[in-house]
Design a protein around this nucleic acid. Structure first.
Lengths: 208, 208
DNA sequence: AAATAAACAGAACGGTCGGTATAGTAGCAG
DNA sequence: CTGCTACTATACCGACCGTTCTGTTTATTT
């Protein structure tokens, strides 16, 4: 309460001191809580409490909890797209781009913040017709085309199948991050699996 | 104590007319509903309705919904163990045993009943400390040692890492079954990935 | 036939959930 | 000043949740 009053009292320097708008704080709180504990377990009261806003603000901004969940997932979707674009932009050779993408996965596994894929988790809780289902489908469609495009770039015969294999490893890593203790072992295994699959898929020109 | 008395009361023809006991029907109903829609979404009312018993029976048998969830997962755990034992017993060569295990996965992907791994789904909904979390951990520990044992049998150097790679593919297949439309493509990709990894992991003696 | 024990049907409990209504206030544009 | 927007604060709603309780029926045991 004291915090709130302080922020509201600001005049000119308000924009500087008030870091985030109400909707941004709601999204941040939703991301933390939904990701850490699950969409169903976390109620709207805990979200508004963490965001430092009131329920009326939540409902005037997002309309419903389901729409907040959609916004939470779409927000993360955008972040993932931006991150992947950045990683891919740093490399030119198709093989290096694939490895860089999975290097990203290894980094996630190395840190403790990664608790699995938000879309897999959200879809596991969704009932048919929920907004999260649609967003998760969109995300996975994007991911799949990303993997197959990379495989195609790399000149891999049967690029669709190879893209699927990358997808399998990617999902496996996400599940392992969520459920298993040995994240480092998983990271190493992913890298090794990707290089093995690459070497056996690419018609060896000079690689061995 | 209720169970004991019931079993003792059985006469000859009762066992024939009464197909399943109350607890068995409850377990069957829980398996169908929890698996199809999720643990949180399905309430106890729907389970007792589907099982054809009353709530009092549920609570005298299992004590709570959380314990019913635990029983549901442990029951499936036992079924998986029996199924895997059967598959492994049908093959002797280590390489064939691994392929047979993943043939099982392909069969699951071919049918429409498979909607992903129950333990992954349940864990995605669990809050820390739930019974389902413990059962899921036990299941995954069993699965991991299974994969590494098979890799060791096959004489693969770095069997632990190879077991992890199999685990990654297995989880990836489970996620794909749950979330993606092209299950057949996933099945083919899994098989191809497993053979690729096998071929690159086993020091080639006569294989090529 | 009387007694015992399950399982039955169903109401009711306390709690939490998502969502709403009302009233008030700070900041800003005209 | 006036209106407008955005937000706060608080109280409340109906629905549903898991759980328990009260009776009633049914079948077996003695």
């Amino acid at each position: 309460m004291a915090v709130k009053t302080t922020e509201r009292a600001n005049t000119v320097e308000r924009k500087a001191s008030q870091r985030l708008s109400a909707s941004e704080r709601l999204l941040a709180a939703a991301d933390e809580l939904f990701y850490a504990e699950g969409v169903h377990v976390v109620g709207v009261d805990r979200i508004v409490e963490r965001a430092g806003v009131t329920k009326a603000t939540l409902y005037s901004t997002f309309g419903s909890k389901d729409e907040l969940v959609r916004a939470y997932l779409e927000n993360h979707f955008r972040r993932r797209q931006a991150r992947v674009a950045k990683v891919l932009a740093a490399h030119n050779a198709p093989r290096e781009r694939i490895l860089a993408l999975f290097g990203e996965v290894e980094d996630l596994l190395a840190g403790s913040a990664f608790r699995g894929c938000r879309f897999i988790s959200a879809a596991a809780e969704a009932r048919p017709g929920d907004a999260s289902e649609a967003v998760a489908n969109g995300y996975r469609a994007w991911l799949w085309s990303l993997f197959t495009d990379l495989a195609h770039e790399a000149g891999i015969p049967n690029a669709k199948q190879f893209g699927r294999q990358l997808f399998l490893l990617y999902d496996g890593a996400a599940v392992a991050a969520r459920m298993d203790p040995d994240r480092r072992g998983a990271a190493i295994a992913v890298r090794s699996a990707v290089t093995s699959l690459l070497d056996s898929a690419i018609p060896s020109k000079r690689r061995r």
